[in-house]
């Protein structure tokens, strides 16, 4: 009795402590929301006034050009659509390619796998700022500049994702695969029916990360897209940089709007962080 009461109290204390720490991490988000309903001059005011005396909803109307409120149409809706499109395609593509390759690197004992994998890792070590111009030249040569394919084709493969999935499959006991082999299952069947279900938590976190990367990709989108019809959200945020000042209120209204799909992806992804999958998989 007393033991479990003590446990409960401990749990509450730990929750409060960590919750407090976690709360500090919402601060930028709260500031974003707060700044997004302020007049430009009040945004950088110190001390920070978290809840302004007024709610300047006009900022959102301007960003989305609702009722012609905007000084000009920032085409934010179109950018939003472009961003969602690219991020979802790349999410699906790279989760698929990473899960395939990660499994092969972890479990299939093909020759040269360590060398190939190390070569993979090595390419992460060159900063993207340096490969930007070569990539641009290549896309230009292929006639792809000015299309979304410049962001989609490279986005279908991620090395970090492959690495993540490899590590994930490394944790899976070999017995599972061996017993399936004995039953005469093909490799692709083992992958699809045994491994993918086990890897769901890893795939889910990969999906979230990939979505975010694509969602926030700035430098590639900046250089590869050169027409407002193709712009993604990070590029359309530069609309709010004036000559002498950045309109942080509008930047933050746009950024807050941009968080909605991220939340949705996160909440969907969280559903796959379920315990005890391994046990279930062994039985099934």
């Amino acid at each position: 009795m007393t033991y479990s009461v003590k446990r409960l109290i401990n749990r509450i204390l730990v929750t409060l402590l960590i919750g407090g720490f976690a709360f500090t991490m919402i601060v930028p988000f709260l500031w974003m929301i707060s700044a997004s309903i302020k007049l430009p001059l009040d945004v950088m005011q110190l001390p920070i006034k978290w809840i302004p005396d007024y709610f300047y909803i006009e900022n959102y109307k301007q960003v989305w050009n609702i009722g012609g409120a905007a000084i000009r149409d920032y085409q934010f809706g179109l950018a939003y659509y472009n961003s969602v499109k690219i991020a979802l395609i790349n999410l699906a593509g790279s989760v698929l390619t990473s899960t395939l390759a990660g499994y092969a690197f972890a479990k299939i004992k093909f020759r040269g796998r360590t060398a190939v994998f190390f070569l993979y890792l090595a390419t992460m070590m060159i900063p993207p700022q340096v490969t930007l111009i070569p990539k641009f030249v290549m896309f230009n040569w292929l006639g792809l500049t000015g299309t979304h394919l410049t962001l989609i084709l490279p986005g279908l493969v991620t090395i970090t994702g492959t690495f993540l999935m490899r590590q994930f499959f490394m944790q899976v006991p070999d017995e599972l695969r061996e017993s399936a082999h004995v039953d005469g299952a093909s490799e692709i069947r083992i992958w699809a029916q045994i491994m993918v279900p086990i890897a769901k938590p890893g795939m889910a976190s990969l999906a979230m990360i990939v979505f975010l990367w694509n969602w926030n990709n700035y430098l590639d989108a900046l250089v590869f897209l050169n027409n407002w019809r193709l712009y993604t959200i990070p590029i359309s945020l530069t609309n709010f940089i004036e000559e002498s000042v950045t309109q942080y209120n509008l930047v933050m209204a746009a950024s807050s709007s941009a968080l909605v799909p991220v939340f949705i992806i996160f909440l969907i992804g969280q559903r796959f962080f379920v315990k005890g999958l391994m046990a279930g998989a062994v039985k099934g």
Binding site: N82, L91, R271
Partner: peptide
Amino acid sequence: LKKQFLSFLVTVILIGSIFSGCGT
């Protein structure tokens, strides 16, 4: 959950390809 996840993935791919068809 497996089925859910796979069907989610498939849906996403489908939506994606529809998007790309009319956008790029």
